[in-house]
């Protein structure tokens, strides 16, 4: 499916839950609400025409007043891909785990939990693996993070 066909197909099937964002990129980007994440993800995977069977990436973005979790999924069968993002509250970021739908999300969600402090609901193994074993300085990828030996790049 070409990106334009994919946009139409998604709009026809999940138009009420996914809204297309105008990013100018070739890969279409959608926004969904955190409450709909699991149903949308399941439809994306199971729908015969969409069949997103491959989980490419999951990243988080700290936008100071909110967090964004950005998912990238692709279809090996139909050779198309799409991104979607979920907006999260900055004070109590929390999101459902999609590892029941795409098992590959497991480690990405652990990384997001560890570096951004975004809590993952119903994750099977939410344990540390990237930061040092004795780390006690919080979530270093947050914009407001600071530590005693952390040096900001001086203004040039």
């Amino acid at each position: 499916m070409t990106p334009d066909e994919l946009k139409d197909a998604v709009a026809g099937k999940l138009g009420d839950k996914m809204s297309l964002l105008d990013t100018g990129r070739m890969v279409p980007m959608f926004e969904i609400s955190a409450a709909n994440l699991l149903t949308v993800a399941e439809s994306l995977r199971d729908d015969a025409a969409l069949k997103f069977d491959y989980f490419c990436n999951l990243g988080a973005v700290d936008k100071t007043e909110r967090f964004e979790a950005v998912y990238s999924v692709a279809s090996i069968v139909h050779k198309h891909r799409l991104d979607f993002k979920v907006i999260l509250d900055h004070d109590h970021p929390e999101i459902d785990s999609v590892q029941e739908i795409w098992p590959a999300a497991n480690w990405y969600e652990r990384e997001m939990w560890e570096l951004f402090g975004i809590n993952i609901r119903n994750h099977h193994n939410l344990t540390r693996f990237l930061l040092p074993d004795d780390w006690d300085q919080g979530n270093p990828m947050r914009r407001d993070w600071d530590a005693p030996d952390f040096e900001k790049l001086p203004e040039l």
Binding site: P140, W145, A147, E151, K152, L153
Partner: peptide, 10 residues
């Protein structure tokens, strides 16, 4: 990695 890095030993 001296500046802006949380991960690298100085």
């Amino acid at each position: 990695f001296y500046y802006d890095s949380y991960a690298v030993e100085k």
